[in-house]
């Protein structure tokens, strides 16, 4: 029993530790986008900008598993607020929310194949095929 508890605590710790890592906003390596400011990131992910600084259309991607952490780090809002924001805009057609992907792997594949795609993932999971344009410290 004690072992079970110790295992659970350990498991919790192991789960929590990677959550404490920074989130990196990434594009396809070699897409021509060097760095993004925080404001650029907000504008792109919140629907204001439809293009990347290099002129490519911007296609932001939301990773469902990281979504809460990401918006907290980016605009300091919870998911409910972000959802309310998008819900308000849906009927007016002014802007559309980012495309939703389920996992970081899926996101990585999408980014790696699409130079317009902008995604985010844990900074420790960034591979060579991705180019980090902004690190969001939590």
């Amino acid at each position: 029993m004690i072992r079970v508890r110790a295992c659970l605590l350990l498991a919790l710790l192991t789960l929590t530790l990677p959550a404490m890592a920074d989130i990196a906003i990434v594009v396809k390596a070699g897409s021509g986008v060097g760095q993004l400011t925080r404001s650029d990131a907000v504008n792109i992910f919140m629907g204001r900008y439809r293009k990347l600084p290099n002129g490519n259309p911007a296609l932001p991607l939301d990773v469902v598993s990281l979504k809460a952490r990401f918006y907290r780090a980016l605009v300091n809002k919870n998911l409910a607020e972000i959802n309310a924001y998008w819900a308000r805009l849906v009927f007016s057609g002014e802007a559309s929310p980012p495309q939703q992907v389920a996992t970081a792997t899926e996101m990585r594949q999408l980014v790696a194949h699409n130079p317009s795609a902008v995604g985010y993932l844990d900074s420790r999971e960034v591979g060579d095929d991705l180019h980090v344009v902004l690190i969001l410290n939590e």
Binding site: M46, G47, R48, Y85, L89, S92, G93, E94, A95
Partner: peptide, 17 residues
Amino acid sequence: RTAQIACFLNGEELARE
């Protein structure tokens, strides 16, 4: 808040509303 969003997005429709 609505005005903020309208301004943020330059949303004329929203602003008119």
